[in-house]
Design a protein around this nucleic acid. Structure first.
Lengths: 214, 214
DNA sequence: TCCGCTATGTTTACAGTGCTAACGCGTACC
DNA sequence: GGTACGCGTTAGCACTGTAAACATAGCGGA
């Protein structure tokens, strides 16, 4: 076979084989452990330690790959966005990535990040810069740093909330629509609303002070 | 003491004691395992199983508490937001919660959600509704569902990106400022930008087609 | 009053995990 | 052709979640 190798005591390219096995397992939802990866790669339980100092390092390597793939999805064959609508499609792609590869996405983000892994940090930064460029392209005269941050956060939050089932995600189209709506709705808010003379009824309806009423 | 109890073979209220011990450990960053919780509660390793079917159930119980606390932070002693600026403060509070109690926040969200736990689902929904009310209050005539979703996602994304170190979070003020900027910047985007006659230079600068050039 | 039932805690055990240490194969280099 | 080192192996530790069997204590009913 291609990834594993020439079948002797020495494997050939175990590092790559482990990564691809791990990625496959991650995406097929199998339980994810160093030992299981080694098992699936047809190698002894501790062989991975010859190539990765610990589990975290292997995860980081996968995350780096993930960042690359995500960046690829966002850029390949399309121009930088030039309108809010384009931007929304950017968001759709981002969230779609998360939904198609949830475990990988969690691995890339949902972890206390290992900032000691240089390559991983670099990969994450590359993504950040890409997003900033995209935003700068859409709204050149504004505070692009804040905007990039906002755009990224919006997409990121949508991704996680869908992943966690906090927002219904029965079909990809439904999700995509929601992402588009969110992006468009957000830019629709009138900038400075005349502060409506706060009616006293604007108290939180269901408010309860924790432990008192119930 | 208050939480543990009257010291015999039977504990008195082990369930509550376990939850509070677990919460304390979670927030102090100790390693989090059923056995460690039992140990810290001064009880045998499997005692928790008398009160929670499995680890997940205990986590869900903590998450429910977390949702309650977050809702409390968002509502206690303040009116529903009436302006975009108010909304930004809502976001600040949300993100601040995540930063102050990162492990709990991760537990509430960063997990494949256990939707079989009714109470947990209910708690999450309550939060969702609260946010929707808030948004409806600020922009009553709009598509509040989409807006609520967008606002929540924005705050949620900011929270996670800060938690994961993807955005610098050296001081709470810095974070709060970024959250405010993001909320305000987002609502500043001109709604329909005349599609700038795409200059060919708008190609992605650092684009590479993965595997080809390098 | 005493008997036994049940809720709640304990002990024991098992399979799986990350990781270390000591060992051995074989390939590449001198 | 010998040898050193890269890479894979086995053995073993401390830990985890979970199940099964056992023990205790306090309550309700005879």
């Amino acid at each position: 076979m291609s990834t594993s190798a020439k079948g002797g005591y020495h494997h050939g390219d175990l590092r790559a084989a482990l990564l691809s096995t791990a990625m496959r397992m991650l995406e097929s939802g199998e339980t994810f452990s160093l030992r299981a990866i080694a098992r699936n790669a047809g190698v002894s339980p501790t062989a991975p330690y010859r190539h990765f100092p610990d589990r975290n390092a292997l995860e980081s390597a996968l995350a780096v790959q993930g960042f690359g793939d995500l960046e690829h999805d966002l850029t390949d064959g399309r121009d930088l966005p030039t309108s809010v609508a384009d931007l929304a499609e950017f968001g759709v792609t981002y969230v779609d990535f998360a939904m198609r590869r949830p475990a990988l996405f969690r691995l890339m983000f949902g972890n206390p990040c290992d900032n000691s892994d240089d390559e991983r940090v670099r990969a994450a930064n590359a993504l950040h810069e890409l997003l900033e460029q995209a935003l700068a392209n859409v709204v050149p005269e504004s505070d692009t740093t804040a905007l990039a941050c906002a755009g990224w956060s919006l997409a990121h939050g949508l991704a996680f909330l869908h992943l966690d089932g906090k927002l219904p995600a029965d079909s990809p189209e439904e999700v995509a629509d929601r992402v588009r709506s969110a992006f468009l709705a957000m830019t629709d808010i009138p900038k400075e609303r005349a502060p409506r003379l706060k009616p006293p009824a604007a108290r939180h309806p269901g408010q309860r002070r924790r432990g008192t009423d119930r």
